[in-house]
């Protein structure tokens, strides 16, 4: 124990309260976080807010937004409530966005940390693997994977994770490479700690700030990918999602363009909030950048 007192401190411990305060001072970040929390609450409450199946006909078709206060966002060609679709669609977008991110980030973290920490042969091999996965255009690979595995919510999640993990892997590899020779890591090694403990307890906490920032942006990416897939019809036909609503509205652009516009606005706001959140987290967790402004 007395030995541990002398070891150089890992730098991350000191920064948490400062980062939190910096984040709270950024209005764009706080508003974005608030928006996302409300969206979450709405998505969770969807069965209470709109207990009807959002795919069922509830009113006269082609009601424009504002025409009937009971259906503030209007109805589509089959008389389905657009507002109900938007709320239920949020469930899918958030579910896919966060699950795909979690899966992809985990995979990327494992591969990237091993490559960065061990270097040498391990690194050579893993870098080649990352490169191979990064070569095919992400979205084309995504379409192929979903088409082959047959579209469903879970295949979409897995496929998005499969095409996005290299981003995290590269980032974490760079972080681990930079951190592995730092004093506190060398000290931990000197104390005889095993690789697993050093990776998880010493290096990982210090590699977290960039990982958190990337995660936020990756949720945004995953939501955009999911919406594009379901716009193309590559999603579970039995669930409403923002992308599929836009796809359905596409045939009616001439007469009822709001059917495509409304769910699109939902996507834009959500993704914008996630990007702004990512920027705010970056400024808060990465003082070099925020100080240079």
């Amino acid at each position: 124990m007395s030995l541990a007192l002398d070891t150089p401190a890992s730098p991350v411990a000191a920064m948490r309260p400062r980062a939190l305060r910096a984040f709270l001072r950024n209005p764009a970040g706080v508003i974005s976080l608030g928006f996302l929390l409300v969206l979450f609450a709405m998505a969770l409450a969807a069965p209470t807010l709109y207990p009807e199946d959002p795919l069922s006909m509830v009113a006269r078709p082609f009601l424009w937004p504002g025409q009937n206060p009971a259906y503030p966002l209007g109805t589509d060609s089959l008389g389905r409530d657009v507002a109900a679709g938007v709320v239920w669609g949020a469930r899918i977008s958030l579910l896919v966005g966060f699950s795909a991110m979690a899966l992809g980030v985990t995979l990327g973290l494992v591969v990237g940390s091993l490559a960065g920490y061990f270097g040498g042969r391990v690194d050579d091999v893993l870098v080649k693997v990352i490169e191979i996965f990064q070569t095919p255009p992400n979205f084309v690979l995504l379409v192929v994977l979903v088409a082959i595995a047959q579209p469903s919510v879970s295949t979409v999640i897995f496929a998005i994770a499969a095409v996005t993990w290299p981003t995290t892997a590269r980032l974490m590899r760079a972080e681990f490479r930079a951190l592995r020779s730092k004093d506190f890591v060398v000290a931990a090694r000197g104390l005889g700690y095993g690789h697993a403990r050093i990776i998880v307890r010493e290096i990982l906490p210090n590699a977290l700030p960039p990982l958190i920032v990337t995660s936020s942006v990756l949720v945004a990416t995953a939501i955009l990918m999911e919406s594009a897939l379901s716009f193309l019809g590559l999603s579970d036909p039995n669930v409403v999602s923002w992308g599929s609503m836009i796809g359905a509205g596409r045939e009616l652009l001439r007469t009822a363009w709001f059917l495509s516009a409304v769910p699109g606005v939902a996507i834009v706001l959500t993704v914008l909030a996630l990007n702004l959140l990512g920027d705010a987290l970056n400024d808060a967790l990465n003082p070099r950048v925020s100080g240079a402004r």
Binding site: S227, A228, F231, L253, I267, V271, L272, L274
Partner: peptide, 10 residues
Amino acid sequence: SVPGFWIGLM
């Protein structure tokens, strides 16, 4: 933050 297919439609 704007999906390409949506801005295309708009």
